[in-house]
Amino acid sequence: MDAGLVLRFPLLFSLPPAGRWLTIQFDLGLAPATIDAYGRALVDYLRFSQQHTFVVETATREHIAAYVHHLANQPAVRPTPDRTAGLANATMQQRLVAVRLFYDFLVEEGLRTQDNPVRRGIYTPHKGFGGSRERGLIPHYQKLPWIPSDEEWSALLTVLKQEPIRNRLMFALSYDAALRREEICTLQTGDVDPTRRLITLRAEATKGRRSRVVPYSPATGQLYMAYLHQRQRLSRQRGPLFLSESRRNRSQPISIWTWAKAIRTIARRAGLPRFTSHTLRHLCLTDLARAGWDIHEIALFAGHRHTDTTLIYIHLSGRDLADRLAKSMNSVHAWRIALLEGLASVN
């Protein structure tokens, strides 16, 4: 049993099957962010079960339905114009995936005699054109990610100029290389090649467990060299690139939570509450699509396993639609001009 997991999720480990399940996921080598998401989701469900006094191991579909209602109607942590209550659809899906996998474990271990109470979507290949998928427990919405406008980007950079050099470098690298927060926080000093301005992302530090090499800009290179001088005052040893400067964790590797908190502070000061650490990745990939990069090139740069994910950024950029509209308008324009030319032959 990992002591770190017990300290982070004491409530979860108070229920032995839950602690065993999360420990197995940890031992299987799942990404730290995935382990954390599973742990937080299951803790939330256990708290709900305590508040409504039902036994987790024998929960019914009625209990799960009540939990879904709870997720959909609790006050929104970050309200938006189109959602003032409830968790985001993606967050609800994430919570229910963890609960469903936990009940799979209980059934497989013989700790639960009933079926899994969390419904799955059912694929029926004989229905419709090319088959269809019946909805699962809740509908799944595929929304395009939010990205800042040019004016909002300028506001962010104005605020960023007042940040420490470490935060400025992490911000710039995250955009340049479309890095996830786990990838930026786990960078090692040996992962950066300043002579060629390249970053090597190790497989074990990526979501898809696939290594890749990505470039960064000359401006970010200047920030990197300036940060190295500051880092030497914290530690001269090789290892984690970004170190904490706080008194409590001085010289310790920066955590994803510290970085997320720093981004929230920057976003709040810029008046952009929807901006997160992942927005930098969304913006970079969208800009690459706007610049005309091929979908497979963007997928390789981003570390996507499937181009279906990459298509989101093609849609967000509007590149294909804009090109098609321009071509259509050109053809219509040429057709109208041809008709106008016919007027010259009329006496």
Rank of each mutant, 00 (worst) to 15 (best):
L179G: 12
G128C: 05
R231A: 04
P148I: 01
L340K: 11
Q252T: 00
A41H: 02
A172P: 10
L157S: 13
I256P: 11
L339I: 03
T195G: 06
G221H: 04
I64C: 06
S251V: 03
E163A: 12
R166V: 02
L7R: 15
Y103N: 09
E57V: 09
I199R: 15
F275T: 04
F26W: 12
I314D: 01
G130H: 13
Q188S: 03
S345P: 00
R268A: 15
F171S: 06
R120S: 13
W259H: 00
I314M: 10
R210Q: 06
W335Y: 12
D320Q: 07
P145R: 10
L316D: 04
D193L: 14
T258G: 13
V192Q: 04
S345D: 04
I184K: 10
V6I: 05
R236A: 09
V107F: 03
M225K: 11
I138M: 06
L241W: 11
P79T: 00
G130C: 06
S328H: 15
G19P: 08
A72D: 05
L179D: 07
I35W: 11
V68H: 09
S14R: 06
G318Q: 01
G4T: 02
R248L: 12
D320R: 09
S211I: 04
L101E: 15
D104I: 00
R210H: 08
L101Y: 14
R231M: 06
H278R: 10
L201V: 03
L288R: 15
V159C: 00
T80S: 15
S246V: 01
L343W: 11
T58P: 04
R78Y: 10
V192K: 14
L71G: 06
Y123C: 09
H296G: 06
A226S: 08
T195V: 00
T309M: 11
P240I: 03
G292A: 02
R209K: 07
Y227G: 05
E163G: 07
E109P: 04
A3I: 09
L169G: 02
Q188G: 00
R168D: 01
Y224D: 00
I295N: 07
T60C: 08
L288K: 15
R268D: 14
G190P: 02
E182T: 02
E245W: 13
T276M: 02
V332E: 02
T158F: 12
L316V: 07
T286E: 05
L228K: 12
A90C: 14
L42P: 03
L243N: 02
E297R: 15
H304P: 11
E108H: 15
V99H: 10
R209L: 13
S244P: 01
Y123N: 02
P125H: 08
I263K: 14
F105N: 01
L316W: 12
K261M: 04
A18T: 07
L283A: 15
L5S: 05
Q94I: 02
R8F: 10
I138L: 09
M92F: 02
H140F: 14
R274Y: 14
E151L: 12
L96H: 00
T34V: 04
L339V: 05
W146S: 09
I266N: 06
S277E: 03
E183I: 00
W257C: 13
F26V: 05
L42H: 02
R168I: 01
V118I: 03
P79I: 10
H306D: 08
R336S: 01
G4P: 05
L285M: 11
R168C: 07
H306A: 08
Q142S: 13
R238K: 13
Q74C: 05
